[in-house]
């Protein structure tokens, strides 16, 4: 017993194991803001990281614009047809918007679940070991970013803010295996609105899984899946993807929908952070 404690190496090992476990568990405790030291480290690293991501962004942007130039003619033809349709839709939209406004006034609605403000940012970096699939974005609490805000890229939802520093923040992607962080309440608007929960990601086929669907309505393929705005800080009507396959869940009780995401999770360069104007109950 005595010899055991005089062994210097043993004591050092024990102390470091204790320290390791306590630091790990302290950092796992989710709190609103990070310790000051961590904020400084993350911000300095984010500023340095920009020195690497800026030039690469510029070069890829150049190549993208060259490849855009190559198929300009075909695209132009297609867009001309599209424009004709847009005029019709615009007229319809104007009427609907006007009607919506008058109805809102009648009902005394302050702000509905669909109203939001956007903050756009650039991706600096991404966690190399994708155990926690996170990207680092160059917008922070100084720009009004808060924990829990949804983040879009291209035309679809990619995740939500998990950590905020003064000039940078982290975004947890929907592809995360972490089961606690990627639940988004979603809906499919058909004749009847179908509510569900985006609760998983199938890495092999690159599809999101929408489960806990209570409705028994038959869901058709290629229907648009969007956020429902119920719960949390996510507004209504952000596109998630479209229905790829409808099956039953493992118990055979409810429907389960495989959703092809609208955003490309492997190539995220610019993001839009969404700030919902309607306050949720929790705030």
């Amino acid at each position: 017993m005595n010899q055991f404690f005089t062994n210097k190496k043993m004591i050092i090992l024990l102390i470091s194991v204790i320290l390791f476990v306590s630091v790990l568990s302290l950092s796992l405790r989710s709190s609103e803001s990070n310790p000051f030291l961590q904020q400084v480290t993350n911000d300095v690293s984010a500023v340095m990281g920009r020195a690497f991501s800026r030039p690469i962004n510029a070069v890829t942007g150049l190549f993208d614009s060259v490849s855009d130039l190559q198929n300009t003619y075909e695209e132009n033809q297609r867009l001309k047809v599209e424009i004709d349709r847009i005029y019709e839709r615009q007229a319809e939209l104007n009427v609907l918007r006007d009607e919506n406004k008058r109805l809102e006034e009648e009902l005394n609605l302050q702000s509905s679940l669909t109203d939001y403000r956007t903050i756009s940012g650039t991706v600096i970096s991404r966690s190399p070991d994708t155990w926690i699939d996170q990207i680092i974005v160059d917008r922070g609490s100084q720009d009004g970013v808060e924990v829990g805000m949804p983040v879009m890229s291209g035309n679809g939802l990619i995740g939500r803010i998990s950590e905020v520093n003064p000039t940078s923040s982290k975004v947890v992607l929907l592809t995360n295996v972490d089961q606690t962080s990627n639940r988004v309440s979603s809906e499919i608007v058909m004749d009847e609105v179908v509510y569900g929960l985006i609760s998983g990601y199938d890495r092999e086929t690159n599809r999101l899984i929408m489960s806990q669907i209570t409705s028994t309505t038959e869901i058709e393929e290629e229907e648009l899946v969007s956020t429902s705005g119920l719960g949390g800080a996510i507004p209504r009507g952000l596109v998630i993807g479209e229905v790829d396959e409808v099956s039953m869940d493992s118990f055979g009780l409810a429907q389960q929908v495989y959703v092809t995401p609208a955003a490309d999770f492997n190539n995220i360069r610019f993001v839009t952070i969404i700030h919902r104007l309607a306050e949720s109950e929790a705030d």
């Binding site: 470091s16 390791f20 476990v21 630091v23 790990l24 302290l26 950092s27 796992l28 990070n34 961590q38 480290t41 993350n42 690293s45 984010a46 970096s125 966690s127 190399p128 070991d129 155990w131 926690i132 996170q134 680092i136 998990s162 950590e163 982290k170």
Partner: peptide, 20 residues
Amino acid sequence: GFIYDSYYSGVLGIYMAVLM
């Protein structure tokens, strides 16, 4: 190790330990 943990994952200690 601390910078790596704090910057990329936010779960402190893992890379500190592994680098040691």
